[in-house]
Design a protein around this nucleic acid. Structure first.
Lengths: 126, 126
DNA sequence: GGTGGTTGCTTTCATTATGCAAGTGACGCG
DNA sequence: CGCGTCACTTGCATAATGAAAGCAACCACC
């Protein structure tokens, strides 16, 4: 069941698509959730257990925002209490090249990072 | 005179290069400053007058952080009071593909955005 | 040579977001 | 039944953000 929450916020800072993109995914945590989804992780616990240690309240809020923005979707895997597994929509899938570019830059320019094998595959498809 | 402030913070959330990149440029404003620099804007007033309306205190702080991180550099263009013009380092230049990908995604998926001509040039070089 | 405007920041302070921690409800297992 | 886990939610302190004002040097004018 989509649309558990409100629609995406129409508050854009400008008409610039970079600013627009940042209004959707431009914070400390969102792209890390999308990275995990891109690696096939599906459930709350998967995201919560990532190395960066996202606070659970923020994780829950980001999942709602991303679903409202149409970047991810959810389907229930249990009824009571209602629980969902998450996945990238087409819109979300198309963030993979952004992730790949960011990973490449991070690997080349941020000391102490290393590209995991799972990421290398993504770099080949641009 | 480089190094007006401290060195880049060594506080990484994980070894992941995406997380590492986000630790440097992953907030609401930083990439917009880099976008402006990529478009040839050089001075404080140029950044401050961008359409998104970055608060000036945040602009000043981000310029310092980015210089400390080695993404931008500055050279004085006047002595008293000391004033600087800014530019991308090689490290900063290499964020252009990230910007380009982000712009493409924003244009395709965020309603109300439009790719300015200046950005289209960047897309050709990946 | 005072007056006003502009540039490039810095400072103050209210509002908002973040993040730690603890709580909750429905299982599942022994 | 008691204990643990999973998937969240809630409460609250602390940190980041953002609106606004302040300020110091220049410049242009008259």
């Amino acid at each position: 069941m989509p649309n558990r929450r409100a629609s995406a916020s129409p508050v854009l800072r400008s008409g610039c698509p970079i600013a627009g993109a940042l209004d959707v995914i431009g914070d400390r945590w969102t792209l890390l959730i999308i990275r995990d989804l891109a690696h096939g992780r599906r459930r709350y616990g998967d995201f919560a257990s990532a190395a960066e240690g996202i606070p659970t309240n923020i994780l829950a809020e980001r999942l709602k925002r991303l679903e409202a923005a149409g970047v991810i979707d959810s389907e229930p895997y249990q009824q009571n209490p209602p629980r969902y597994s998450y996945g990238l929509t087409a819109k979300g899938e198309e963030l993979k090249p952004v992730l790949a570019r960011l990973a490449l830059w991070g690997k080349q320019h941020v000391r102490g990072t290393r590209l995991p094998d799972a990421m290398k595959a993504m770099l080949t498809k641009s």
